[in-house]
Simulated scan of single mutants.
Amino acid sequence: MDAASVTLLTISSLKEQAGEQPLVAFVHCELQSRSQRQTKAGKPYLVLTFADATGSFNLNAWSDAPLYEAVASIPDGTVLGLDAQWTQNQYGVNAANLAWERLSGDELETFFAGDAVTAEKQRRDWETIVNFCAGIRDPRLHALTKHFITELGAKFRRAAAARKNHHARRGGLSEHVAQMMRTADLICGAYPQLNRDLLLTGVLFHDCGKLWENQYPERGFSQAYTLHGEMLGHIPLGIELVNKLWRDVAEWPEAKDWLTVEPASETVRLHLLHLIASHHGELAFGSPTLPRTPEAFALHYIDNLDAKLEMVKDAYAQAGELAEGIYEKQFPLPANLVDPLPAFEG
């Protein structure tokens, strides 16, 4: 295959373009993990997970394929250039006539720099987060968000919003939180009884435990697993983190001026913790308590709305058409999607 005539795609572009007809393309990606499986006939195979700045995909390496033997000498974290005829169906991405090579030198550095479009979007989203936090008027919440951004901003910018389904990429948490802040700001305009400072702060911190549950290294796009993330989960971790940061800012010199501020600081802290604890909305979905305040209900629905619309966007890009304008159901969405109605243009 002539390398000069083959397109280099990101993983997100591959998922958007691959379908039933073979697509010849290169993909640069990091081998994130491998899992040993067996077919119904008892034959072994590997499920390999590859990732880049835009997302991830699984690829089956069957026991009679050259990749199955080769991957034994390719450690996790290795960056590969995959050259194949790609197809995609309801079960995922497939590769025929697959060839691969390890990236090195300038190609490797370009890969770790990430997709330029994704990087620029995440930079703008981070600016959105910082600007909204700078506008918080409550001095306790302003100090808390400033302290968090200063101490953990870099770690925040590397985290994903999830391991799969939505914003499951390095920097995805910044994208998710920025969009939620934009929505929260608009909703507070429509419902002025909402405490805007509290809601914006709750948006910032609702998934802050994912700095440990869905974290990425400083160099690379493989999402790590941690004992804290596995044994506690992001909601308890978020509550613990906010309590720690609150104790920090309580020691600042300006904190003495907060003693007479209403509502009382302890009440503000409790309401913020409630937003983190209840944001999944239901006990069955992992929240240790149910929403009990207007801001808690608003945060839950804002979070769910952004996650669902991200899933819908990805589903339109990746799902096969069952008929004109009707697309295959994509987990975890509840049904087949239908083309949206275009806006009236007059």
Score class of each variant (00 low, 15 high):
Ala3Gly: 08
Leu8Glu: 09
Ile11Met: 00
Ser12Cys: 07
Lys15Ala: 03
Glu16Leu: 05
Gly19Trp: 08
Ala25Met: 01
Cys29Thr: 10
Gln32Trp: 07
Gln32Gly: 09
Arg34Phe: 04
Gly42Glu: 04
Leu46Tyr: 09
Val47Trp: 05
Leu48Glu: 04
Thr49Cys: 13
Ser56Tyr: 07
Leu59Ile: 06
Asn60Phe: 09
Ala61Val: 03
Ala65His: 11
Ala65Val: 07
Pro66His: 06
Leu67His: 01
Leu67Glu: 04
Ile74Tyr: 06
Gly77Arg: 05
Leu80Pro: 02
Gly81Arg: 10
Leu82Ser: 02
Ala84Gln: 03
Gln88Ser: 10
Tyr91Cys: 07
Tyr91Ile: 10
Val93Thr: 09
Asn94Val: 12
Trp100Val: 05
Glu101Ala: 15
Ala113Thr: 12
Gly114Glu: 00
Gly114Lys: 07
Val117Met: 15
Val117Leu: 14
Ala119His: 08
Gln122Thr: 00
Arg123Glu: 11
Thr128Met: 14
Ile129Gly: 03
Ile129Lys: 03
Ile129Pro: 00
Asn131Tyr: 11
Asn131Cys: 13
Phe132Pro: 05
Asp138Gln: 14
Pro139Glu: 09
Arg140Gln: 15
His142Gln: 10
His142Trp: 08
Ala143Val: 05
Ala143Gly: 11
Thr145Arg: 06
Thr145Gly: 02
Lys146Arg: 15
Lys146Trp: 10
His147Ser: 12
His147Thr: 13
Phe148Gly: 02
Ile149Ala: 07
Ile149Lys: 06
Leu152Arg: 09
Gly153Pro: 01
Lys155Gly: 07
Lys155Glu: 10
Arg157Met: 05
Arg158Phe: 01
Lys164Met: 07
Lys164Leu: 10
His167Arg: 00
Arg170Val: 02
Gly171His: 03
Ser174Pro: 04
Glu175Phe: 03
Ala178Trp: 01
Met180Gly: 05
Ala184Arg: 04
Asp185Cys: 11
Ile187Glu: 05
Gly189His: 06
Gly189Arg: 07
Ala190Asn: 10
Gln193Ser: 13
Leu200Pro: 07
Phe205His: 04
His206Arg: 04
Asp207Gln: 01
Cys208Tyr: 03
Cys208Thr: 03
Tyr216Met: 01
Glu218Met: 14
Arg219Gly: 07
Tyr225Ser: 11
Tyr225Pro: 01
Leu232Val: 07
Gly233Pro: 00
Leu237Thr: 01
Gly238His: 02
Glu240Pro: 06
Lys244Thr: 12
Arg247Gln: 11
Arg247Val: 08
Trp252Arg: 14
Glu254His: 07
Glu254Asp: 11
Leu259Met: 13
Val261Asp: 15
Glu262Leu: 14
Ala264Phe: 08
Thr267Trp: 10
Thr267Ile: 12
Arg269Asp: 09
His271Val: 09
His274Ala: 13
Ala277Pro: 02
His280Phe: 12
Gly281Ala: 09
Ala284Thr: 12
Ala284Ser: 14
Ala284Met: 12
Leu290Phe: 11
Thr293Arg: 10
Glu295Tyr: 04
Ala298Val: 06
Leu299Tyr: 06
Leu299Glu: 02
His300Phe: 14
His300Ala: 12
Tyr301Ile: 15
Ile302Lys: 01
Asn304Leu: 15
Asn304Lys: 15
Leu305Met: 15
Asp306Gly: 05
Asp306Glu: 13
Ala307Gln: 11
Lys308Ala: 14
Lys308Asp: 09
Glu310Lys: 03
Lys313Val: 03
Tyr316Pro: 02
Tyr316Leu: 08
Ala323Gln: 10
Pro332Cys: 09
Leu333Phe: 06
Leu333Ala: 07
Glu345Tyr: 15
